[in-house]
Design a protein around this nucleic acid. Structure first.
Lengths: 348, 348
DNA sequence: GCAGGATAGTGAATCGATTCATAGCGCACA
DNA sequence: TGTGCGCTATGAATCGATTCACTATCCTGC
């Protein structure tokens, strides 16, 4: 039944236990762990044997308490289940690995409270910096954090202040790209399934949407049907379509969804209602996630440089730490790109 | 340019600084933080003001060092970018939240070294337990971990030993379901795009595949074309199809992919090669991820109870901790379910 | 007026790893 | 023989929050 067990450990062995067992001082054990070349071979071997026998594992809390800091940064994204953010996170990790930093990754689920909680958790744990896709109103908290010595880089959002760096994609342009495309196809009544205005991306893409409409001589008041959903995922998309189709008035002939997950849900709901795509409803998404091109009706989408986004954010953060006061804050902005497919353009 | 800054903090304020500023002892500050009702209103207010003024943030390392443990468990999954695992993780979180536990989530990317590294990291940080989707050969490390007082629950794998619990879905059955379906449609030559045999899921699903073939009177040697890919994602799927189509011999008429991400990549490559689905190649995936039903050709897949899987694993872990020696280890196994769609069955 | 009890607040000891000033030892060189 | 250097090893001090035995103070009731 049970293999050799020393029972539920009463207490983790500490460096002191190892020292006793090996017949050396704690300082020597520490040296074996951290500066092995300063210890004679015979002593080192004795200590290593003791470590093995006791199954000693360093206590990270004690280390960090003494060291005061750890080679770790935190990142908070809006939704870890969204492929867009997992690709961004991969870019972050790749850059951090080069400097032997570790990543603590969390998802705020677009909830300012969760965001604040994780921010505090990160700080209590002594991370050196954080990358955040912030929700509205968290700027003050981030500035305070920065003042307390924790570097901050905004992720997928343009910084509203000069002394915090950011890496973003031009969401205004992206929103405009989507709607210019739809208008160019002749649509004059367009639905916009968008998230709450507490999310900067939603605000910016909306601005682009309005600009594109106005630029084409259309009046947003009549040309645009806005639906605000609670969460930017497939469920939100379904909810948005259901509300749109249940509403009074002329049904739009085109739809722009704030991201691809939302568009996926929207497509599902549209299909359930028997709405033909793109004949009765053209659909455009955002992010160009991995499966966008493979859907029943391949999804027109706005592509963003995800990996590069994450990589650059991590790079700015690390450079900020290493360069100190000499570091110049900057707002990096990448350009999005429209990928036209069958969900909007039958000829694509 | 810069708002009020106290520069890069020389040192985080500690509980001692707060005590000095408020004119009380450190014990009192600690009481304000942990047992506020044992402190008089006036004192409490004074301390809170000091905390606010100094922007004091607790040092998690010091807390944990003293406390010895934290209300945290770790989880290591194979691929955090796979929707299957993000849904499982959501289930884990939901159960943990009920007991006010926190989750540290990592992805091993199917790399035993990464897995071992994270396991060690978790242990150093003093997590109370871990949930792991293990790679081959890590069992000994997990048993040792368990012996050191850290509870272990295997996730999405059936435990090979009696004294470690596990929560899994019957992968043998799942693999059989997929191939029985294909055989039932008349296919006698089937490709199996599978991952390395270091991954238990791959072994089990393969076993089901072989059993289904044999059970139908087919000889795996001639009926099965196995392609082993390096990573279980879309890139792996593309690679698998490219190799399959480049190979000598009769081209199979059906294909079973070890998961849906792989299937997605496979579909993409098949399309690029102009192979008609399901006419020239029937395709079955595994996991029934969120977008499976929405693909160009809706994907036949084997559905698993993701959320329940994660929830149950976390539940076992927490109960194991609270019940102590009285806890009965168990192997929970859920049953998968085949969802037939157009990628295998034109009539679906 | 005083014992007894409740209430507030204190501060030294503790957790475990790291650091650093110090010491012991052997060897080489003057 | 003595000085000085290099190499090893030592162990007390340190990081910051928590705990707990203890003191101080005030109140209640007889």
């Amino acid at each position: 039944m049970s293999t050799t067990t020393r029972g539920r450990a009463d207490r983790r062995p500490s460096i002191t236990d190892v020292a006793k067992r090996a017949g050396v001082s704690v300082g020597t054990v520490s040296n074996v762990l951290n500066r092995p070349d300063q210890v004679s071979d015979s002593t080192r071997d004795r200590v290593l044997v003791a470590i093995e026998e006791l199954q000693f594992v360093r206590n990270a809390s004690a280390r960090q308490l003494r060291a005061g800091t750890i080679q770790t940064v935190g990142a908070i994204v809006l939704d870890i289940a969204n492929p867009f953010f997992t690709e961004v996170a991969r870019g972050v990790e790749d850059r951090l690995a080069a400097d032997e930093y570790t990543l603590m990754l969390s998802s705020s689920d677009e909830d300012p409270e969760r965001e604040a909680r994780y921010l505090r958790l990160f700080e209590e744990h002594g991370v050196q910096g954080v990358m955040v896709t912030p929700s509205a109103g968290s700027l003050d908290a981030l500035l305070a954090l920065r003042d307390r010595g924790i570097d901050v880089v905004l992720l997928d959002t343009t910084s509203p202040v000069d002394d915090i760096s950011s890496v973003a994609v031009d969401d205004v342009r992206g929103g405009a790209l989507a709607v210019e495309h739809l208008v160019g196809l002749g649509h004059t009544r367009i639905a916009f399934i968008n998230g709450p205005q507490t999310i900067k991306q939603c605000v910016d893409r909306r601005e682009g949407v309005l600009a594109a409409l106005t630029g084409a001589g259309l009046d947003p008041a009549s040309a645009l049907v806005e639906i605000t959903i609670g969460s930017l995922n497939a469920e939100g998309g379904e909810e948005g379509v259901n509300r749109l189709l249940a509403a009074e008035g002329d049904r739009p002939t085109a739809m722009f969804c704030v991201n691809d997950l939302t568009a996926l849900g929207a497509l599902r709901a549209l299909r359930a209602h028997g709405v033909a795509i793109p004949a009765e409803m053209a659909v455009v998404g955002y992010d160009d996630v991995v499966f966008a091109s493979m859907l029943t009706v391949p999804l027109t989408s706005v592509r963003q440089p995800t990996h590069q986004l994450g990589w650059t954010a991590a790079d700015l953060l690390l450079r900020q730490r290493s360069e100190g006061a000499a570091f110049q804050h900057q707002r990096v902005q990448f350009q999005p790109e429209l990928v036209v497919r069958g969900s909007s353009d039958p000829s694509a």
